[in-house]
């Protein structure tokens, strides 16, 4: 396969990533959200693998492998177990104003591209055009965390944000040094477990995972 074809493939995966970010923004079912997160991880791993193959950066293979293990298998599995044990598997969140959220999301994408363009022009990597998409998916996950009112979707938003950041690292620089990537992966993993422990504590105290119960601490 030619290098341009591979670059095109990465572009397609980037578009898929952005599409998934929008899908997560409007998805009401917790179960489907986890599936979307796993798909996002898969797209990330695939694009990392393609970049590794086309540039011969061996450390990116490890990075892709870690992504598959962590973000496609382990974290979705942990989240599945969690929602089973918390009996929120079939939870449906009432989201208001999906159209407005989508419009804000489109605005964010335009903003992200405007911000990333001067930097992508400087990049020499063959995947440079995807930096804008990476930034856009980070911002969309940020938006998702703001509009969600349940704890589990908020955490999924956080994990999606981490995916976007990893994608930014591969598309702008062919990935961070391995020590750093390993460290970040460890933090994400530990973070997910702590979130899990937290869910049970919150549930025990508030009988619900709705974070609207947790808005007592305010300045009066």
């Amino acid at each position: 396969m030619g290098i341009t074809l591979l670059a095109e493939l990465v572009n397609v995966l980037a578009a898929f990533l952005l599409l998934l970010a929008f899908a997560m923004l409007s998805q009401r079912r917790v179960l489907t959200l986890i599936k979307l997160l796993a798909w996002q991880g898969a797209a990330l791993a695939a694009s990392t693998g393609i970049v590794a193959w086309s540039t011969g950066q061996t450390h990116l293979y490890y990075s892709a492998l870690i992504t598959v293990l962590l973000k496609v298998i382990l974290i979705p599995w942990v989240l599945h177990r969690l929602i089973d044990r918390l009996f929120v598997r079939w939870d449906i969140e009432t989201l208001i104003n999906i159209p407005t959220t989508m419009l804000i999301g489109i605005g964010l994408v335009i903003f992200a591209f405007a911000l990333a363009t001067p930097i992508s022009q400087m990049a020499t990597t063959l995947t440079r055009s995807t930096l804008g998409i990476a930034l856009a998916s980070v911002l969309l996950s940020f938006l998702m965390m703001i509009v969600r009112q349940k704890a589990v979707p908020q955490v999924i938003g956080f994990l999606a944000m981490e995916n976007g950041l990893f994608f930014a690292a591969t598309s702008a620089t062919y990935g961070m040094p391995l020590v750093v990537e390993l460290g970040v992966a460890l933090d994400v993993l530990v973070g997910t477990f702590i979130f899990g422990i937290f869910f049970f504590h919150i549930r025990e105290r508030f009988d619900s995972l709705d974070i609207r119960h947790m808005e007592k601490l305010k300045e009066d």
Binding site: V138, M145, M161, L165, A172, F195, F198, R205
Partner: peptide
């Protein structure tokens, strides 16, 4: 494990993690 302390910890966790995600992007740049 009081309601107030759980709320404080959740806020701490979410806000600092999101903040640090920005710092990670800065580090990537």
């Amino acid at each position: 494990r009081t309601p107030a302390s759980l709320e404080a910890a959740w806020k701490y966790f979410i806000l600092c993690s999101v903040g640090l995600a920005q710092a990670l992007f800065g580090t990537i740049l």
